[in-house]
Design a protein around this nucleic acid. Structure first.
Length: 498
RNA sequence: GUCCCCAUCGUCUAGUGGCCUAGGACACCACCCUUUCACGGUGGAUACAGGGGUUCAAAUCCCCUUGGGGACGCCA
């Protein structure tokens, strides 16, 4: 759809409608992203609606957590709960289904009045038995109408006396329904694919499929991108749109995100919520970019895509209908790319909470020049922010120690000589900080004094600096430490050989 | 069981009948850079699930098989 065409049509309005039962799952995050991007691409509006009709599982706390995750990802909505106060913002509220009960009940009454729905007094046990019978008979497990539909007046009397009844939609016509899906093309559903379905539970709460239709219609939603599991729900919803005479939005059913075992990504695969990834030190930009590309591709073929370009290029033609496996290796790569491209001030700001978490003391970090120097060295080694914890560890005096991998060096005959010469050079220094040039001079003099060269020279020095045989270049590391700190460290090495 | 969806390198994908001896990215391997480890650079290996059609021509269209997933809730 071109921009010109669109301007003459109704305004594009999309929505994300999570049920607040825990943190935001990456699959949900992707759905939210796609709806957001689609709306913005078409200059439209993106709405957040909370689907909390399941009283048992929905919590206020979960809603807040999900809003937090959405904010973290940089997905912003035009209507819905205010991100700070949670108060409804927008002309079509309330945006929480638990507060729209009257609207649903009113609609249900409309269907009853028109004979399109009926009160059902059957119990769970009865229905379960019916289902089993049908499966045993090789039929689909759909629930049909009861033997006798209770007339409205009689039903009302029984309910007044305290009996419980659900309101069920009556599937009367037998015909095919054709859905023009934005990602799958034409999908044909035979109407007998579903039985008479519940609209209002016997406890008075409406059910998902029912609310969803009414809300999307009343909130003037034009396009809905949602997970594939809803594909077969769509038939019920089509029937409902027809029954109410509401205009149906365009649907696009997204394939699943799978775990390494090709099963739908779930808790047992480890990290699956945005919150998990946040705690593991992934950047929202990276996670966002990664989920964007599992199920959609850019027309330019680029993989690292700015939010601006995401919006610019986001069209439904580029959805991939087949399921995508969640590839942590690629996410890691993407995270490191974003990490390295961050300005150092910003990178430091994001690393700090992790250093704090690890209890690292780094008094030198108050100096911006020091931070800049340190990040230049370390950021190329980081895949997640959490990696800073172990990277900055050698710079912390409190946490300094000699690693097991350094043991070999202690067996070298030159090591002790090198350390003694290194220590003498440090002691001769007048300032606390050592520049790269000074270090080069020191190293050279140690070489001459001891006769050690190559690995025999720099390995012992390295161990005396960071306590381990591998790490960043010494000429960069040494200027990050103070003279007194280096003296303490070489003393530790000498103490161990003696 | 019934119905629905899906099928290109290990993974994410490009591909909408000829530009495909199938392109890119991650991962992997080799080499280069490097007084370590990374970063970076260059190169390499690796895929159209199978079988039938349609067509001058099929990864691309149709059918079947197989495999994977989903729905059949008073969950969403």
């Amino acid at each position: 759809m071109s921009a010109e065409q669109n301007s003459t049509q109704e305004k594009v309005r999309t929505r994300f409608a999570p049920s607040p039962t825990g943190y935001l799952h990456v699959g949900g995050a992707r759905t939210a992203l796609y709806n957001y991007l689609f709306a913005k691409h078409h200059g439209g509006e993106f709405i957040l609606r909370i689907e909390d009709t399941d009283l048992e599982r929905s919590t206020e706390e979960s809603m807040r957590m999900q809003i937090e995750d959405l904010k973290w990802l940089g997905i912003v909505w035009d209507e819905g709960p205010d991100p700070e106060t949670f108060a409804d913002v927008g002309p079509y509220g309330p945006y929480r289904q638990s507060r729209r009960k009257e609207i649903y009940l009113e609609h249900a009454q409309r269907l009853i009045a028109e004979g399109k729905a009926y009160y059902d007094f059957r119990t769970d046990e009865e229905l379960e038995r019916l289902r089993e019978e049908r499966i045993a008979a090789g039929q689909s497990a759909q629930i049909g109408p009861p033997e006798r539909i209770v007339p409205v007046e009689e039903a009302l009397e029984r309910i007044a006396k305290g009996e419980k009844a659900a309101i069920r939609f009556r599937v009367s016509e037998v015909r095919d329904y054709v859905l023009h899906d934005l990602v799958r093309g034409e999908v044909r559903f035979p109407s007998d694919m579903v039985g008479d379905f519940v609209c209002i539970r016997s406890n008075g709460m409406p059910v998902y499929n029912f609310c969803c239709v009414i809300d999307d219609a009343l909130m003037k939603i034009t396009h809905v991108f949602r997970a594939e599991e809803h594909l077969s729900n769509t038939l019920r919803q089509m029937m409902l749109y027809e029954a109410f005479g509401y205009k149906m939005p365009k649907f696009g059913h997204l394939s699943f995100i799978l775990g390494p075992d090709r099963q739908k990504l779930s808790k047992r695969h480890g990290a699956t919520s945005c919150h998990d990834f946040k705690m593991k030190g992934y950047l929202p930009e990276a996670l966002n970019n990664f989920i964007l590309l599992s199920g959609w591709s850019s027309p330019t073929g680029e993989e690292i895509i700015s939010r601006e370009d995401q919006i610019k290029h986001f069209t439904h033609e580029r959805f991939n209908p087949s399921p995508a496996m969640f590839d942590t290796q690629k996410l890691d790569w993407m995270n490191s790319v974003y990490l390295r491209s961050l300005p150092h001030d910003e990178l430091w700001r994001r690393i700090e909470p992790f250093l704090e978490r690890a209890g690292l003391d780094l008094p030198m970090a108050k100096d911006p020049a020091w931070r800049d120097q340190a990040l230049t060295v370390f950021k190329v080694k980081m895949t997640t922010l959490a990696d800073a914890e172990k990277l900055f560890l050698p710079l912390s005096d409190a946490k300094f120690g000699i690693a097991d991998e350094a043991a070999e060096v202690f067996g070298w005959p030159e090591a002790k000589k090198v350390w003694e010469a290194w220590k003498a050079e440090l002691e001769a220094l007048s300032s606390e900080r050592i520049t790269e040039e000074e270090f080069a001079g020191i190293e050279d003099r140690v070489k001459k004094a001891t006769g050690a060269k190559g690995k025999q020279l720099f390995m012992p020095i390295r161990v005396a600096v960071i306590g381990q045989p591998h790490g960043a270049e010494l000429k960069i590391l040494v200027p990050l430490l103070t003279r007194s700190s280096l003296l303490k460290r070489v003393a530790a090495c000498l103490a161990r050989v003696n």
